[in-house]
Design a protein around this nucleic acid. Sequence first.
DNA 1: CCAAAAGTGTTTTTCCTACACCCATGT
DNA 2: ACATGGGTGTAGGAAAAACACTTTTGG
Lengths: 224, 224
Amino acid sequence: MKVQDLRFAVLATDVVLFSLHDDRLWVRLITTQNTHFQGMQALPGGLIGPTETADEAAKRHIEAKTSIASAKVHFEQLYTFSTIDRDPRGRVVAVAYLGFVPWERLSEVERGSTSDARWSPLKDARGLAYDHDEIVKVALARLRSRVTYTTLLQKLLPKEFTLTELEHAYEAVLGADLDKRNFRKKILKLDILKEVPNKKSGGAFRPAQLYRFATDKVIEIEVI
Amino acid sequence: MKVQDLRFAVLATDVVLFSLHDDRLWVRLITTQNTHFQGMQALPGGLIGPTETADEAAKRHIEAKTSIASAKVHFEQLYTFSTIDRDPRGRVVAVAYLGFVPWERLSEVERGSTSDARWSPLKDARGLAYDHDEIVKVALARLRSRVTYTTLLQKLLPKEFTLTELEHAYEAVLGADLDKRNFRKKILKLDILKEVPNKKSGGAFRPAQLYRFATDKVIEIEVI
DNA sequence: CCAAAAGTGTTTTTCCTACACCCATGT
DNA sequence: ACATGGGTGTAGGAAAAACACTTTTGG
């Protein structure tokens, strides 16, 4: 076997970029240029270059394909998909990533749609090109799992938030209702939140205390 | 950019193959052939071929490099390492796997050492070639984490085992002592074990009840 | 003063923890 | 009969679950 023959595969990355808005999970989708999947929706992604890591490629393609500043996005490696015929153009091995961005950090243009990219409610994100339905399925399972034993949700929330907003975030991701009083007792006892001086007066009702996470790092916690 | 330039990387797989024996974790190591790491120990692994998935390559190399039948091994994808200079020979992206094999299922030759391959206590597995120290570190963290919320340990135990053996397995992996009575109550309440009719009479003491896992599948459980 | 979400406490039940002795067997 | 690991119960404390009313604000 010649060295050239060893380099048979193209390396790519695909990103499942999540945001949380309107008590629902959203995913950023693009319109694929691949003629085999004419006009279909797909996950943003692209090739990994000779001088960059998979992480760097994921960040680069998020910027290029979805017009969202990658500095706002928290990335985690998800899984590597290496099925032989997953791309009809040839052998492409994809290192898939999870991305998380707080809706509140997005600019008007980043929230918007173009003919090339848009936010879609997660539950409508089906019928995607390639094996991207499968990737989204794995992504959601990983997200749900990690949310129960880490502080990953902070990457989907603004810096400051109310306990009700945090509870709704858990409910949206887990697809389950939580008891308000028990949730508050539990989350405060974990000692991962800091009260901030300000309150959020959102309308014709009592203003809510704002909190932030004590650290920017995603850490392991007791199970929610 | 020409198509040939896109195929710059060699794809490889490395396997952290664990076994449990003598109340300790062991890892299968090989002697690397790479001249840059002359005579050093490394994880078993090798190139991914044009007509196989990463999973298939991991299985193939475990057979070829460590003389252990891959049918006995439970594989899980660990992480993909894509640092640019991780292999001095050129760009190699490695899809790393965890492997688990019950010591009791190994044949005499599979348990043994050759000049090419051997079992090493996990805590002695340092100073490995490439970035394999790092891969082992990630592997142990993943193993410890998964053991607490899944039935993964079944892949390191024989089909039938006593509760004491199961407890010792948890203690070896987690590096912590557990209370015998509380452990038994907890694990039995989870309802994942089946009593089998036989007992294990190991010597000059009361024979122990044998159990097996109710299912071969690794499932999620409450935290141990 | 009304609508809307914020915020709070108690009781019951379940689970966790700590801890020590008798049992069945082989030699 | 003794040495060895197998096997069991209980009490006290902590955490989980279930559950409803008062507070604060804007309109």
